[in-house]
């Protein structure tokens, strides 16, 4: 399963575990896991608007942290619900570079079934690690 919510971590918040065969897949799944906390029916998000996200970080986990924070930023600043359309992650001279295109639309309460607003990505037990030839992330979101 590309992502699953964890029942026994963070009683007041929501934790998830996401996996991917490679980093772009992991990042896309983690983005969907975050968006799915806020919107139940992800399939109802139409790709009307796009945003380009470019980030770099020395550490892969902090790159994911920044990336998820960007999605939360667009949700508040523009009420924009985004899903990853394409992502590319390269490592150059010990630093990770991300280029992603995210597509989505403004929240429409009639069509998008809301769940809980995500306030922030927390660093409590936050991890990105290699597992079984792929990647796994554990994330606790503040609700």
């Amino acid at each position: 399963m590309p992502y699953q919510y964890l029942e026994d971590i963070g009683t007041a918040d929501i934790a998830f575990e996401a996996t991917g065969r490679n980093l772009p897949e992991l990042f896309s799944e983690a983005a969907d896991a975050t968006m799915n906390v806020m919107i139940d029916n992800l399939g109802a998000i139409e790709p009307h608007d796009t945003r380009q996200i470019e980030l770099s970080n020395d550490k892969i986990d902090m790159l994911l942290f920044d990336f998820l924070q960007d999605l939360i930023y667009f949700k508040d600043a523009e009420r924009l619900l985004l899903r990853v359309r394409d992502a590319q992650i390269d490592k150059k001279e010990g630093k990770y570079f991300l280029k992603a295109e995210a597509a989505g639309e403004t929240l429409d309460a009639a069509r998008h079934h809301q769940r809980a607003d995500v306030k922030a990505v927390t660093l409590h037990n936050f991890s990105v690690e290699k597992e079984n030839g792929g990647w796994k992330a554990t994330v606790l979101l503040d609700i």
């Binding site: 009683t11 007041a12 918040d13």
Partner: peptide, 8 residues
């Protein structure tokens, strides 16, 4: 104070 996670 919560006793049960949101997911549960």
């Amino acid at each position: 104070g919560r006793t049960m996670s949101r997911t549960k």
